[in-house]
Structure formats: structure tokens, C-alpha cells
Amino acid sequence: MAGKTINIKVKVWRQGGKYPKGQFETYDLKDVGTDMSFLEMFDVLNEQLVSKKEMPVAFEHDCREGICGTCSMVIDGQPHGPMKGTTTCQLHMRSFKDGATITVEPFRAKSFPVIRDLVVDRSSFDAIIQAGGYISVNTGQAQDANAIPIEKDTSEKAFDAATCIGCGACVAACPNSAAMLFTSAKVSHLATMPQGKVESQKRVQAMVNQMDKEGFGMCSNIKACEAECPKEISTDNIALMNREYLASVLGSDKEG
């Protein structure tokens, strides 16, 4: 697995500081190891820039093992790059050809304003969770965990929805900039489990209202979100949320 290197050009969106309006800058990188991760390639680029006393490219990253959801780049038109079910930090340079020009842009959506270069503000996701993405249980109120049996497949289904890492790739991928996959994954995770069923009617209305308030677009079932989601969350969750929402608004006495 060792040894191979490639030469590439990286065309990166720079915004802020020297680039008040935002523009692309192209950088040459020589002898990039193919075992390098995509972010490590950026580390190398940034070391180059720092050695020239320039501002490094700002990009967000943290765990670098595909679980924190911090990294947020659109690589050659795809959030998190070309590899399916993979976050940017787990993408490796072996996915690129020698001599390639790689275009890297920030996640684009009105509700994800650019902070600097490739860094965007995703606090709208927090607002959606705060609107109702929880089960109202205080610490210490819980009964024994085994008092609520949950059928294995049901539990697995809830888990599949719960694997969302809140990275925002769904919004970035969506031609409508909708946040349906994110919101529905949470709605679905909680509504699928008996613990969460209790307040599911209120929850779905509150979360959908908040999602709308945050200015996200509307879903037209293109399913680009599912295709680009690093955790491969299914759009079945969106159907479930639609169902939950309509049932709640039309079929219950709850008002969101």
C-alpha cells in the first residue's frame, strides 16, 4: 500500500481576508501520496501556504474518522467527494488521477452561509434539533432499560436513521437545498422507538416548522441527499416524516 504519488492541481474557493468577495485560487501540489487522506492533502497545501507566510485555506475538520460530521467540502461537484458512503476525511488520494484538477467548494445553501473559505455555518441544524429533536425525559426519571422491549428490526431501523452525523451533505447535495433528510432522520429515529413515539406528534410539527423557518428549500424527492449522504441514510425516512407530519396535522388535535 505504499509508495505511489501523484501530481495534482487544487482549485479552492477562498473567501474572507484577502478575498472579500470570494474567488477560486488554484494551487499545484507535487508528489502527493495516494495513501494520504484528502484532508492530509490539505494539511500539506496549508503547510506550503504557511511557509510562504500566507493564510492557509480554512476548512473544518475534527475527528478524521468519519463520525463527527465536521468536515464539509464539495469536491468536484460532490459533497464529500466521489466515494460513496464516505466523509471527506476518509476519502483518500487514491481516488484521484495523476494530473487531475480538483475543484473544492464550500457547502452551498442560503441556510449555510460561508464563514471563511470552505467553512460554513450549520447552526440551523442545531435549531431544528432544539425545536423538538429529543425525548423529554429528565435525568433519573428512566425505568429499567429492559422494561421496554423493542423488536430487533425496529431497533435497527431506528439506528439506521440515527447514524446521521449532522454534516449537512444532504443540504449541500440537494438541488433545492432542502434539509429533509437531516430532519426526517431525527424524526424517524425517535418516532420509530416506543420511547419517542409518546411525543412524536408534537415533535414532527415543531421540527418541520423550524426547518421551514431556517429557510431551507423544499424537497422534490430527487434523492441526491441519499446518494451523497456519508452514512447512506435512506429517503424512506422522508416518507415517514411526511406521513408523520400529515397524520399529526390532520389527524391529531396537536398544533405545531
Binding site: 425525548i135 425525559v137 425505568q143 432499560a145
Partner: peptide, 13 residues
Amino acid sequence: IDQCAAQGVPFGR
């Protein structure tokens, strides 16, 4: 474990 299960943590079953 009780608390987390009540919060909806999908533990393996």
C-alpha cells in the same frame, strides 16, 4: 443505561 435507553439511544438488541 436506563437513562440512555429512555432518551432513545438505539442500543443493540
